[in-house]
């Protein structure tokens, strides 16, 4: 039992060491990715699986596998720009509201009683539009598998 657990621990350690010798993306599976080969050929692939020594993907080829040593980089989708969109939307709505209030004051008019509601409406609207627009943009990250630490 003890010997088996030591063997298992060694296998896990060995696996981690072999995995970390390359600058690999954080996950083992990606629905879609771009693979840049060392020959500068670029492949757009689906269902990318990253193994210890090679990557596999779905396609007409059989087997669809490429050794990691032949790969220059892997580009994967790394989230969406929703957060950036929310910030941009909020800031834009804030600028519109502040400019509006300044203009009303400059013209000598008094602010409406439901100003708070209007401000809230603008802020929420700006945030929603920003979030929606940001969500449309995907974020990508490129991992050069053989890059050295700086």
């Amino acid at each position: 039992m003890k010997r088996t657990s030591i063997l298992c621990a060694s296998m896990v350690l060995l696996f981690k060491i072999s995995y970390s010798q390359y600058n690999l993306p954080p996950d083992r599976f990606y629905e879609s990715a771009t693979i840049g080969l060392k020959t500068f050929e670029v492949l757009k692939v689906d269902s990318l699986r990253i193994q210890d020594e090679y990557v596999s993907y779905s396609g007409l080829c059989d087997p669809c596998e490429i050794p990691i040593d032949d790969i220059n980089y892997i580009r994967i989708q790394n989230g969406r720009k929703t957060k950036n969109g929310i910030i941009t939307g909020l800031v834009s709505a804030g600028i519109i509201v502040v400019t509006g209030i300044i203009n009303v004051r400059r013209m000598g008019d008094s602010l409406n009683d439901d100003i708070v509601g209007i401000v809230m409406l603008y802020m929420v609207g700006g945030t929603l539009i920003g979030a929606f627009t940001g969500h449309k943009f995907r974020k990508f990250a490129t991992f050069y598998l053989h890059a050295l630490d700086g």
Partner: peptide, 13 residues
């Protein structure tokens, strides 16, 4: 030739 990582999200080496 070789690549070295830098702190740049879009142009990382």
């Amino acid at each position: 030739s070789f690549q070295v990582k830098v702190d740049n999200q879009h142009f990382p080496v």
